[in-house]
Design a protein around this nucleic acid. Sequence first.
DNA 1: CTGTGTGAAGCTTTTCACAGCG
DNA 2: CGCTGTGAAAAGCTTCACACAG
Lengths: 205, 205
Amino acid sequence: MAKENVPDVVIQRLPLYLRSLVHIAERGQKIVSSTELGAWVGVSSAQIRKDLSYFGEFGKQGLGYDVEFLIGQLRRILKSDQTWHMLIVGAGALGHAIANYRAFENWGFYLVAVFDNDPQKIGSPIGHLIIQPMEELAETIRKRHIEIGILAIPPQSAQAVADQLVAYGIRSLLNYAPINLVLPPGIHVAHIDPVVSLQSMAYYL
Amino acid sequence: MAKENVPDVVIQRLPLYLRSLVHIAERGQKIVSSTELGAWVGVSSAQIRKDLSYFGEFGKQGLGYDVEFLIGQLRRILKSDQTWHMLIVGAGALGHAIANYRAFENWGFYLVAVFDNDPQKIGSPIGHLIIQPMEELAETIRKRHIEIGILAIPPQSAQAVADQLVAYGIRSLLNYAPINLVLPPGIHVAHIDPVVSLQSMAYYL
DNA sequence: CTGTGTGAAGCTTTTCACAGCG
DNA sequence: CGCTGTGAAAAGCTTCACACAG
C-alpha cells in the first residue's frame, strides 16, 4: 500500500496538504498545481511533488492535480477513510472542550468514552457520553475496540495513566498534559502543549 | 546573546528540555547528564550537547549539568524570564479552557484580554477577565502592549481575524483554528490542530 | 574515570533542473 | 507550452569519536 520507508517529516506534512486541499475544494476549485498548493501550505512546489511521489503518481503532467482525487488519496494514505475509536481521560475544562469538538468525526475519529477519577463527575453527561470511572478502562477499551487515547489530565498523573492505557492495548496517544511521556517503542505519542509552542515563538520575538 | 543562526529545529527542542528539567528539579535532583536528560526527552545525548553548544558552555566536564542553572539559561534563551501579553479571540468552549489554563503565567505568558463577536457573550466574565467586542481590538493591543494573539475561532473567520491582529501589530500567533494561515514574512505562527496530530499517528496504526 | 564540547563524518531532507507527457 | 515526477546536487541535521577538564 504505502511505499518503502517514508520519512516521518513527510507523514507530518500530508495532513497539512489535506487540510488545505479541503479548503481549496470548498472554494469550488477542481484542479490545483503543486505551486498553488505549496503557496497555501507554505512549502515549495518541489517539496509537494516529492512528498506525493512516495505514494504514487497522482497528478497530470501539464495540468496539475484533481483536487477531489488527491483528497481521496490522502485520506486513504492517512487512514482517515476508516473509523477509529478514541477515549479521553480527564473531564475537566479541556476534556469538555475536546469532547464537544465537532471536527473529529469528519476524519473518522470517533470519541466513544470519557473517564475521570473524580467521584463527583462520574455519571455526569459530557457531549453525548457519560463520564465513566477509571475502573472501567480496561473493559471499555477491549469491548469498544479503542485504538487511540487522549490525555487531558494534570501532568502528575499523566505517565501513570499512559502506562495503564498502553497496558490495556492502546497504541496511539494524544497527550495534552505538559509532560514528556516515556513509553515503549511502537507506541506513538503526539504532544499538544501550548506553552512549548509559545516558548518556541517567543525566541524569535 | 544568542549565537549566529540556530536551526529552527533546535529552538523547537529547547522547550522540551526545559519541561523535562523542571520535572527533574521537582524530584530534587541537582545534577543531570546529557544522557539522562536525553532519555527523558527521547533524544540522543549528543543531540542535547550539540543543541546547547549553540548558546554557550553550560555543563561541567566529567560531571554534567547543574539542573537549576540550566533551567535558568533556557528560560533566558527562550525569553521565558520576561513578561509577555497575550489575547484570545474566541470565547467558546476552547477559549474558556485556554483562558482558565493555569500553566501560562509560570512562563511569563499573561492573558490580558479576550474578544468575541457574539453580542450575547460580550461583557460576560471569563476567568478574571471580561469578554470584549472586536471593535476594541486595535486599542487594547496598543494600550496593553500585547505581542501574542491566540485564535480560538471557527476556521471561516480565522484568516480575516489573523490579518486584523497583524495589522494592529501582533507578531506571534497561536492558532487553534483548523486552517493554514497565510501571513507576511516575519510573523510567527504555531498551529495546534488535534486532527493533524491524529492523522499523522493514524498512518502508523 | 566520567561526561562535556566539538570538528568531522555520515545520513537525511530539500532543492534543482530537466526529461517527458498531456 | 505547462506542470509533473525524479535522479542528482546541495543543504541541513545528527551521530561519531575523541581531546580535554574536573
